[in-house]
Design a protein around this nucleic acid. Sequence first.
DNA 1: TTGTAAGCGTTATCAA
DNA 2: TTGATAACGCTTACAA
Lengths: 354, 354
Amino acid sequence: MNIHDLAKELKVSIGTVSRALNGRSGVKDETRERVLKKARQLGYSPNQSGRSLRQGTTGLIGFMIVTNRERAYRGEAFFMSVLDGLQTFLASRGLELVVHLCGSDQDPEVHLRRIVERRLVDGIILSQTQRIDGRISYLNGKKLPFIAFGRSQEPGKYSWLDLDFEGVAEQAIDHLVSLGHHRIAVASAADDINFGHVYVEACRASLAQRGISLPDEYILREALTEAGGYAVGERILALEHRPTAIVLVESTMALGLYHKFHDAGFEAGREISVVGFDNSPTGDFLRPSLSQFRLSHQDLGRWLGENIVSQLESRAKNKRIRQVNKIWPMEMIVGGSTGLPPRNDAINLELLAP
Amino acid sequence: MNIHDLAKELKVSIGTVSRALNGRSGVKDETRERVLKKARQLGYSPNQSGRSLRQGTTGLIGFMIVTNRERAYRGEAFFMSVLDGLQTFLASRGLELVVHLCGSDQDPEVHLRRIVERRLVDGIILSQTQRIDGRISYLNGKKLPFIAFGRSQEPGKYSWLDLDFEGVAEQAIDHLVSLGHHRIAVASAADDINFGHVYVEACRASLAQRGISLPDEYILREALTEAGGYAVGERILALEHRPTAIVLVESTMALGLYHKFHDAGFEAGREISVVGFDNSPTGDFLRPSLSQFRLSHQDLGRWLGENIVSQLESRAKNKRIRQVNKIWPMEMIVGGSTGLPPRNDAINLELLAP
DNA sequence: TTGTAAGCGTTATCAA
DNA sequence: TTGATAACGCTTACAA
């Protein structure tokens, strides 16, 4: 069933059918009705390859996810709600979202090049950006609209959206320091994903502002998984100068960390305070509940959709694409995992006062 | 940059370029070399729309995921590793995986029809099959290769892959009954997803074989989330005749359930035994660790890839497509969450003996 | 071994 | 308001 068959069935020309279906003007109302009805009846939809070839656009927006065996189970689940928000928005604009997975043994840049060169999509959103990310410099050289979900150190003007790691670090550190903590560790990503670096540096800056240093042994780089959290627990419990608090760049780690604490007879919020990251249900259902940050994944997805569509529209009108860089604010929700430091570790501010 | 530009650059015809790039015979080795080199140099890849239009195939395999706000955070994470295995296999066969998300406010069948009618993919894998699932009967009427990941009650011959819910139920029930449990509850899905029904009935059958009935109040249908698990915990603790064990159709629920137990001063494996489902890291890192079932998501994905490719090949050779129905075996890993029932609840088999 | 040209299904231009 | 036709980029049958 193609446009010729449909036209023959209706005894009109393919041009008329095309105009009718695409809402072009210059078709008699009655004819348009007939065409639409018959198309519905016969289940006809235009072949996308034909359309794409003629129009030069596919109507598809790509979202690239790099699967990583280690993190595959939960880390990427973060994206599901983001994708839900994105897809819902795109659908409202007649666009279709397609998610491209990059297998754990493939090179993300090579994979991206294939997608772009074959013209599979009209625009693409990258995620899990690395500090040095060849995908970004590659796309900077193309005219394809794209957004990096996550900052990078790649030079050049391009649109990106990122979580407010600085704000999160500041709120977390402020909360902990005001409780009296001054030995605060940071658990971050083991690989070169950019936010891992950003978060550590943001914590360092927030600590420094309060006259507190972040020694190397308090920076714990592990997998962003339950197992990684467990490893973090082992490492901090083994330290001679144990921290009294730890901030995590990913809430999933909390489960492993709690487990290790449990084994050692510790409890989060008593011996060691813990701050998670984005609001995972896991954190809410831990005991004690995890102090973490409010974040609407759906809204994030919607923002991505609005922004990529605006790029598409600029391009269609041959206008210059406006680059947007957005830091997504997040707000702390204090749970039971943060409390006063153990007595002999607290700075008693009153005693220090003259 | 299209095939004409490349041909002009090389001073050969487009036919030769195409033959060279596609590995067709009848091209001088030297010419082929030159073409391949130049194509690489200029970053040329054939436009997919052009190819698809000509060949009638897109080289894309779809995987449809229905996002559901309630489950979005973790339930769908199950798929990430499956997709990793699938994508890796497809890439080895020159095919590209595209994941189509169906937003929570969209009709999955309508969404599927649009994908199929526009010829976006050469084959598609459905997931989250419902008991009555219009998508399956729709695809049965088409010639597009597809696999349902999850059985359904839809009539007709079609390929499907499903987890061995019967085997899981049998092993779980056998384990619990041999520990002395005879009041066993089942937590399953609240919506019409088919595996929810399958699992309950499988448990009922395994219990019946041992002369144990499954009363309605022991069937707890809730969301497959932490919150759902918490709700399950509330409900069973409120029962007059409390079960001594519960089996869950999704391990994520365990976190909420443990939390509720903790609040009530209970511990899994002591007052109430708990059996989870697929081997989530969450289950491994709970305390006590969750008894659950071994499952390689990657292998599952690979199986899907092999099967859809075999369908594609049959179709290309105009051979009849062989329908395959596969039950994926799973093996129990006993953790600390299953133990003897509390004393006064156990059937002491020796005392019952004459 | 290479070049030429038809045709895949669509949209858009132009003429009627 | 409609119909005929070119063009999008590619692969392939056929001719050279």
